[in-house]
Design a protein around this nucleic acid. Structure first.
Lengths: 207, 207
DNA sequence: TAATAATATGAGCAGGTACTCACATTTCGA
DNA sequence: TCGAAATGTGAGTACCTGCTCATATTATTA
C-alpha cells in the first residue's frame, strides 16, 4: 500500500512557472502519443522527447510511468465528478427525472467529445488497471449521490436491485460512448447517440 | 493489409497430435498468465516457458505475439457467435421477445462466468486494438441477425434509431458484465446481474 | 551580489523484449 | 528399414524499456 502511493504520487511539486510548464508538457505529450500511436507505443523516453523535456526532468515529477497516467486519470475523474455533483445539486428541487438524466448525460457527452483524446486511453485503462482505485471511488461516490437524489422519486424509480441498477447506469454512460468511438459508422457527435443513451438510462431506471 | 494478415495468421498448421498439443499448451499458458499476472507481465518467452515448450516452437505456429491473442480472440468470438446464432434460430417461431432476450443473455452470462479467465483480457483488448476486426465483424453480424429477427415485432420494438439501439444492446451485453468483474461488491454469479441485464436490454428495446 | 535552492540535462545501465536460426529429435510413409 | 518431412530446441541478437545520477543551468533570497 505504501509502495503503491510512493510509486503513483508525484515526486515533487512544481513551484516555479517553468516547472509547471514542464509537467503540462509531459502530460500533453503523453496524451498526444496515446491519441496518435496508442498505448503500446508509449515510453517515458518518447514522452520526454515529444514534450521537449529531458528524461531526467520527467522523473523529477513522476516517479514512474504509471504515475503519469495516474495523474491524468485523477485530474479527469475529478473534473467529471465535480461537474456531475454540481448538476445534481442544481437539480435538487426538480422532480423531472428524465430531464435530469438528459442534462447530465448531455454534459458528459459534450466533455467526452471535447476530450476524446483521453477517451481511448480510458477505454484501455478504465476497466483494466486495478491500481486506479480513484475510478472505483468515483463509481461509489456517484452511486451514493444518485441514491440520495433519487430518494424523493419513490413512485417513479424501480428500486429492487438499486445497487446493480445504479452501477449499470454509471457504466453505461461511461463505456457505451467509448464503444462508439471504436466503430466507424456512428459518430460520437451524432445527437442521436446522446438521445439513445438518455432513453436507455431512463427506461432502465423507471418503474 | 497483407502485412497484417501475415503477422496475425498462424505460421504453420499443426498436423500431428503433438503439434496440436503444443499449440494448445501455448494458448493455455497464455490464458493462465493473463489471468494470474495480467497483460503487462506477458512475454513470449514466459509463455513458452509456462507452456513447457521452446521459444522456437512457439514461433513456428505464431509469427508474432499478437497472433496468439488474435487466435484466442477469434476462437472465442466464433464460439460466442455460433451460440447466439443457434439460439436465435431456435427462437424463430416465438413472438415472446423478452423470453428470447432472457435466453440469449443467460447463455452469454453462463459462458462469461465459465470463461472468466478470458474476460479480463477482453476488457483490455476488446475496445482497444483496432487490428481485431473480427470483433467489429461480429458486431455487424449480430446486428444484422437481430435486425432480421426483430422484423415481425413491428408493434413491440422501437425502431427509430435501430442502428444505434442494436449497437448499444450488443455492447451492453458484452461490456457491462466485464465491468462487474472489475469491482468487488457484486459477483458475476449473482443471478440479479443477469436479471438486471435482461431488464436493461428489454426495456431499452421495447416501444 | 553571493549563496542557496529549484530546475533541467542526457549519457548510460541493467534488464527485459520479440524474434531468428542452425541444428537435434521424432514421426511416418514407402 | 530408411530417409524425408514434421516438429522441437535454446543460445544468441539487436533493440527497447524504465529509470538513475552526476553535473549544469536558472531562479530566488538574504
Amino acid at each position: 500500500m505504501k509502495t503503491l502511493k510512493k510509486r503513483l504520487n508525484p515526486r515533487k511539486e512544481p513551484n516555479q512557472e517553468r516547472a509547471r510548464d514542464t509537467v503540462e508538457n509531459i502530460v500533453g505529450a503523453t496524451a498526444h502519443i496515446l491519441e496518435k500511436d496508442g498505448f503500446e507505443k508509449i515510453s517515458t523516453n518518447r514522452i520526454a522527447e515529444k514534450a521537449g523535456v529531458s528524461i531526467g526532468s520527467l522523473y523529477q515529477y513522476f516517479p514512474t510511468k504509471e504515475a503519469i497516467f495516474s495523474f491524468m486519470m485523477e485530474r479527469y475523474v475529478k473534473s467529471q465528478t465535480e461537474m456531475v455533483d454540481k448538476l445534481i445539486q442544481e437539480r435538487r428541487q426538480s422532480l423531472d427525472l428524465k430531464e435530469t438524466v438528459r442534462i447530465i448525460i448531455s454534459a458528459i457527452m459534450e466533455s467526452k467529445i471535447k476530450q476524446s483524446r483521453f477517451q481511448k486511453m480510458f477505454a484501455e485503462k478504465v476497466l483494466s488497471f486495478a491500481g486506479y482505485e480513484s475510478l472505483h471511488k468515483q463509481d461509489e461516490h456517484l452511486i451514493s449521490v444518485f441514491e440520495k437524489y433519487l430518494e424523493p422519486f419513490g413512485d417513479e424509480v424501480r428500486k429492487e436491485n438499486l445497487d446493480i441498477t445504479l452501477y449499470f447506469v454509471i457504466q453505461s454512460v461511461k463505456v457505451l460512448p467509448i464503444a462508439i468511438l471504436y466503430q466507424n459508422k456512428i459518430k460520437l457527435q451524432d445527437p442521436r447517440v446522446t438521445e439513445e443513451l438518455v432513453e436507455l438510462v431512463y427506461r432502465y431506471m423507471k418503474k
